[in-house]
């Protein structure tokens, strides 16, 4: 019985592995006839990178750009676990430094954009937020990012700079969650990036405040060392840094690096 069971387990493992291998369609495998550049980019880059990718494909016939958007640290983890990315665009320098320190990207990363925090309030500004200090007013439900994520670290820096101690009702893991809490009207105000407010259009209103520039978030980009199509990866990075890429980024609210 025992050996039979062991054999069955081995067989089962084989079946499982074969089954999973069958399911795993890797981007980049299929497109060898026409080349594919797989770009892992921070979620905030969705609009400008989607537009740029279309233009890049038009300018390089036969090349397909596959975009994967998620939180920067998620993407970095995926890349360090061997995800088939050619280019990585991070929303903060620390996350990129983690990959570059591990030797997983080509050469030094290049900064291509910057982003600053702003106050987002629900349409109509129900709590009448007019300044950064209003966020700490008793009764105001403020939501920020947790200090562990870049937008939270920036919120902390801005708060210290303004001499205001925030007492948030929630410290979210991502800026998207902060925006969601504001857009749904659950929170009276939230600290998000300028680009988030622009992308959310009429779902939230912006209350700009002086001192936001005390915490500027820089976005670095680099080619992944295991990139399949190195020259195409390099070309895409040039496109991001070039006038067209910069124009798309400006349009989405990003600042110069």
């Amino acid at each position: 019985m025992r050996p039979a069971l062991r054999a069955a387990a081995a067989l089962a493992a084989g079946v499982l592995a074969a089954g999973l291998a069958g399911c795993a369609a890797r981007p980049g495998d299929a497109g060898d006839a026409g080349k594919t550049v797989t770009v892992f980019a921070a979620a905030s880059l969705k609009a400008p990178f989607t537009a740029l990718a279309e233009q890049f494909e038009a300018a390089h016939p036969g090349t397909t750009v596959t975009l994967s958007f998620a939180g920067s640290s998620d993407l970095a983890t995926q890349i360090s676990q061997g995800a088939p990315a050619d280019v990585f665009a991070s929303a903060d320098a620390n996350t990129m430094a983690r990959l570059s320190g591990a030797g997983l990207v080509e050469g030094p990363p290049r900064d291509f954009a910057s982003n600053v925090l702003t106050i987002a309030v629900p349409p109509g500004n129900p709590a009448s937020i007019a300044s950064f200090a209003d966020l700490a007013r008793p009764g105001v439900r403020t939501v920020i990012c947790a200090a562990q994520v870049p937008c939270g670290a920036a919120a902390k820096a801005v708060g210290q700079g303004a001499g205001v101690t925030l007492k948030p009702v929630s410290e979210e893991s991502s800026v998207t969650d902060v925006l969601g809490k504001v857009a749904s009207g659950e929170a009276d105000a939230g600290l998000v990036y300028v680009t988030d407010v622009l992308a959310a259009r009429d779902k939230v209103q912006e209350v700009p405040f002086p001192g936001a520039e005390q915490a500027v978030n820089t976005y670095p980009i680099a080619a992944v060392r295991t990139a399949k199509h190195k020259e195409h990866a390099a070309a895409f990075i040039e496109a991001v840094l070039g006038p067209d890429g910069q124009q798309f980024l400006r349009g989405a609210g990003f600042g110069t690096p």
Binding site: V143, A146, P168, S170, E171, E172, S173, D177, K181, E186
Partner: peptide, 13 residues
Amino acid sequence: TLTFAGSLQGVTR
């Protein structure tokens, strides 16, 4: 929980 309650140490996290 993440969507509805938020995330604050000792309260909702």
